[in-house]
């Protein structure tokens, strides 16, 4: 089945690139190599979305795997009326939001469990000031950190629009809010991010 992503016959065929929708339909009919192609096509794309959204690569990989597992399990639930990319992004987005909610709950418990003495040793987020050492990788880290400082509703649309470059229409379908709301969130998110990255942008 997924035994060999790299050597599957379908991958060897050149010059004939089936659409995502063709692939999932082939998979629905039992062509397991089509699933290999879907994985190959989407794993990095989804990983980048989820990683930027939840901020941890290991957890992001786990969520992306779970996304593919859901596609595998629920393949017959996909109907061609929607774009496949919208469907798979919706699954990944839902799983990421669930993870963020779980994390919030865990954080709430761990902070309330701490004594006052413990809290004194917590590293304050304000102490994080990597703007002082701006260069290549560090600059990336700053941007990543600032994206993570946005609230999830702004973060998600900023990643989908400005990092992944999806259309407003598709984002609207993925997160199930009207296009106008998506545009407004993207613009407000950009303003927040721009103000947070002011120093970095001016140093450039």
């Amino acid at each position: 089945m997924v035994e060999n992503f790299e050597n599957s016959e379908a991958l060897k065929k050149k010059g004939n690139k089936p659409s995502d929708e063709d692939l999932i339909e082939r998979f629905q009919r039992g062509d397991v190599y089509a699933f290999d192609l879907i994985v190959k096509r989407y794993k990095e794309q989804l990983l980048n979305f989820v990683y930027r959204f939840i901020g941890n690569q290991e957890e992001a990989e786990d969520i992306v795997q779970e996304t593919f597992l859901r596609v595998y399990r629920k393949r017959h639930a996909y109907k061609r009326i929607a774009k496949f990319s919208t469907w798979i992004y919706t699954i990944a987005g839902n799983l990421s939001r669930t993870e963020l909610r779980k994390r919030k709950r865990r954080k709430l418990f761990s902070v309330t469990d701490m004594g006052f003495e413990d809290r004194d040793y917590e590293i304050s987020d304000e102490n994080y000031n990597p703007e002082n050492k701006v260069d290549g990788v560090i600059q990336e880290e700053i941007i990543h950190h600032k994206i993570n400082n946005l609230s999830p509703k702004f973060r998600e649309v900023i990643i989908l629009r400005d990092v992944q470059e999806l259309s407003y229409e598709e984002i609207s379908k993925i997160i199930k809010v009207p296009i106008g709301t998506v545009k407004s969130r993207v613009n407000r998110g950009r303003l927040k991010l721009q103000s947070q990255l002011k120093d970095l942008m001016e140093k450039k």
């Binding site: 089945m1 990989e61 795997q65 470059e165 950009r190």
Partner: peptide, 30 residues
């Protein structure tokens, strides 16, 4: 200009790669 720069910064973020075990882990889970 500021918003354009911001977009270009976001658009050029290094993409992360899946770990070498990604495919084998997925196979195992399936």
């Amino acid at each position: 200009q500021k918003i354009k720069d911001l977009r270009s910064q976001l658009g050029s973020l290094q993409s992360v790669k899946t770990s070498p075990d990604f495919d084998s882990d997925l196979r195992a889970r399936i």
